[in-house]
Amino acid sequence: MKGYASLVKPYILWMSLFIVVPMLLIVLYAFTEHGNALMAFRFTLDNFMRFFDPVFIKVLFKSLEVAIITTVLCIIIGYPIAYIISNTSERTQTLLILLITLPMWINMLVRTYAWISILSDGGILNSIFEFFGLAPIKMMYTDFAVMLGMVYNFLPFMIISIYTVLAKLDRALIHASHDLGANPIQTFLRIVLPLSMPGVISGITLVFLPAVSTFVIPKFLGGGQYMLIGNLIENQFITVGEWNFGSAISLIMAVIIMGSMILTRKIDRDASDTASVEGGKLW
């Protein structure tokens, strides 16, 4: 029914105004001189030049470092969990997946906030240490706390995305591999792991993207002085009011994220070029 195709028109208008225009505004602000007044633009690259200050570059690298470590930790912890879940009975799988997704429905700020009372100097963990006669450890406002908060928040995404692929994996392939003489470890390395890469890749996307741009977790668990790129952007817009600079930083971040996503996908494709031919059909 071609008549229904016209239903898309209002949405195209809506999208242009509320999705495309805002993106263009960020670009516009990033490349123009200050002044929040409309219609007084002057092209400049200053906002980008300003970012190449060692202070800001350090923040950028810190953000990337934290996000990459978080992503790697999520793979290392999430993969075995997803693997174990996919090997349980169907009923247990449903239950475990429900249990793992349930915390995701609770407000992210609330969940992060809950860690404060556990990690703080007089907090639950240190009380336990004290009970066993151990010296208290400073955990709040450290890299450890920030990464813990990130892993806590984003691990479920990794588990679910790997699990989804593993659960769909044809058991006959594993049988076939055993049948051809591969022991369980060889089977895992040669069959299960390569075939579950799409799940890992989408997990990386789901973890890395929010991890590199979050400003709530570092603020709560890293303290006011802890600066990641998300905090930097927030400051420019909320505290300092330097919208042009803030837009430039956002643009740089968006480009880096897009670049790393393309890179990840490319690495995956190169690693298994035959699989990617049919990748779409398989998953």
């Binding site: 805002p22 505004l25 602000y29 741009s213 400003f215 998300g230 817009f237 837009s247 971040m253 968006a254």
Partner: peptide, 24 residues
């Protein structure tokens, strides 16, 4: 075309969508 624009807010970090709307 519509789908790739539609994907923007999903693939972009939330903070980018947020400041875009703020600027708008």
């Amino acid at each position: 075309l519509v789908l790739s624009v539609n994907n923007f807010p999903i693939l972009n970090p939330e903070i980018v969508t947020a400041i875009g709307l703020m600027l708008l």
